[in-house]
Amino acid sequence: MKWLSKTYVAAVMLFLYAPIGVLIFFSFNESKSRANFTGFTLDWYQKLFSNEMILQSLLNTLIVALVSSVIATVLGTMAAVGVNSLRKGPKALVMNLNNLPIVNPEIVTGVSLMLLFVMFKELMGRVGMNFEFGFTTLILAHVSFSVPYVLLNVLPKLRQMDIFVYEAALDLGCSPSQAFFRVVLPEIMPGILAGFLMALTYSIDDFVISYFVSGPTSQTLPITIYSMTRRKVSPEINALSTIIFAVVLLVLLLVNFHGARQERLQRRKGGAAA
């Protein structure tokens, strides 16, 4: 039984990682072939780092991600505080609307935002003003699909929070806003941070929605990757994949290591208390 389950786990892992392994392997391949390994080279990495288009789109991605997730975090946290004090019925309504972009297929969100921006562009055109697809549309779209995740991360923290903590702060002479910034905010910080990180990763990773709302001057990395894959043979993709994989692996390892240490600390604290 043990042996069987180990084999099974190994098989699934092979399925998940073999394709990535192939990409990484051929990123060091001298020839452009995707099946023949002719010799080791780092050329593709060099080409990658001298590729203006890729570097520019990487920069674009980071700008859009940072700006949109900061806006989304502020907006979402404020929304969470408001929603938390709603009664059950209105709260359910708001949460259902909030979840719309999450459950809706990305392509529908993408085209619906595109329609909105096209309409707006026409309206502006009529009054003689210019409105182009670009950073503005990208950031508006990214904020829209990120806020729901921030809200979903912050709201449970508010719900768990002891309401008397806030009242105690008032009792001790804080004004409502002081009480919020000194007592409530630190308490829900983990949720805010988690929401921000989620917004950041979703924004960096998004292709489908960006595909419909970006302009020619605001290509993000996923869009550039897409146009590269259309050209069939471009080994720089392999090199780029390898780098992305390494970065993701590093980030996950750090997060995991941090989590494990946190847990160990917690356990030690708990042990001391008991």
Partner: peptide, 12 residues
């Protein structure tokens, strides 16, 4: 693997 962009995974 989920954190790798899905375009790259599909390309693989």
């Amino acid at each position: 693997p989920m954190w790798m962009n899905f375009l790259l995974r599909t390309y693989a």
